[in-house]
């Protein structure tokens, strides 16, 4: 039973990353009509940013949790201003190709300097150790990742679904021309949205640094799983992305316990099943 709970926890942690990443993908897709293939690369940049802050500047985990997403978010906004904005009005596929190219560049540059092996990042002293819950031993850091991710996800949901800014954002997704006529600066909103999506990915990167080590290719395979998560959940609903992300993480964790051979493939198999039964995805609307 101990092993089962441990795998469930690992599943919840992976689910947090799936949720944070697919949430960012959905937000970006809503505004820019682009599937951000560089999402795995910016997740990795978040982790590296935390690593540099600690090892070069001596800035610890807590400030990094804020600085890294902002720094990587600014990097994303520069990408949007200099490149992605020129793709508006073109076929969606060009956005995918451009961001794939960006992912190759970013990952390639990091691989050149850091090789493919992992760099260690220590768990902050406040979150070391664990709690004995009676039925299982809970490492505090892992519990923190799950709780904190959940809070960030719900805050993002609140921002988009319940605030005035979010209402403008959703309106601009539906009809950008009309929203501009109301005097809202839509291009700036698009840039900020891309920054937000990228920042969420970078935040996931910082959270994962002490668990998964910091590697140049840490996001490369992850992003493909997240794509499958997005296909399963559909990108129509923010809450849908969050729930699908966590649920698939847990299913993956359970698979690791009951049938480890399939743990790499279970998300993809589920994607196939969902496509056969409900092609629009679990929460998706029937759009192309």
């Amino acid at each position: 039973m101990q092993a089962l709970y441990a795998q469930l926890l690992v599943g919840l942690i992976n689910g947090s990353f799936y949720a944070l990443l697919s949430l960012g993908l959905a937000v970006i897709f809503g505004m820019l009509n682009i599937i951000n293939f560089a999402h795995g690369a910016v997740y990795m940049m978040g982790a590296f940013c935390a690593y540099f802050l600690l090892n070069v500047m001596g800035i610890g985990y807590w400030p990094a949790l804020i600085i890294a997403p902002i720094a990587v978010g600014i990097f994303g906004m520069i990408l949007e201003r200099t490149m992605l904005q020129w793709l508006s009005g073109l076929d969606h596929l060009y956005g995918l190709l451009l961001t794939f190219g960006l992912a190759l560049i970013i990952q390639g540059v990091f691989q050149n300097y850091f090789g493919s092996s992992g760099l260690p990042y220590a768990i902050p002293s406040e979150l070391q150790g664990g709690l004995n819950l009676g039925f299982m031993f809970l490492p505090i850091y892992r519990g923190w990742v799950v709780v904190f991710s959940l809070i960030v996800c719900i805050a993002t949901w609140y921002l988009i679904e319940k605030t005035r800014l979010g209402a403008n954002l959703r309106a601009a997704t539906e009809n950008p021309t009309l929203v501009r006529a109301f005097g809202i600066n839509v291009p700036r909103m698009i840039t900020l949205t891309y920054g937000l999506g990228v920042g969420l990915a970078a935040l996931a990167g910082v959270l994962s640094a002490p668990i998964n080590q910091v590697r140049p290719l840490m996001g490369a395979d992850l992003i493909i799983v997240v794509f499958a998560v997005v296909v399963i959940g559909g990108m129509g609903s923010i809450m849908g992305s969050i729930i699908t992300g966590f649920a698939l993480g847990v299913i993956e964790g359970l698979t690791k316990y009951f049938y480890p051979e399939a743990s790499n493939t279970v998300v993809f198999v589920l994607m196939v099943l969902v496509l056969l039964v409900k092609p629009t995805g679990l929460t998706g609307r029937a759009t192309t």
């Binding site: 190219g101 560049i105 390639g108 540059v109």
Partner: peptide
């Protein structure tokens, strides 16, 4: 890899 990425972009 980096050069391939640049060509893509």
């Amino acid at each position: 890899t980096v050069i391939q990425g640049v060509i893509f972009v």
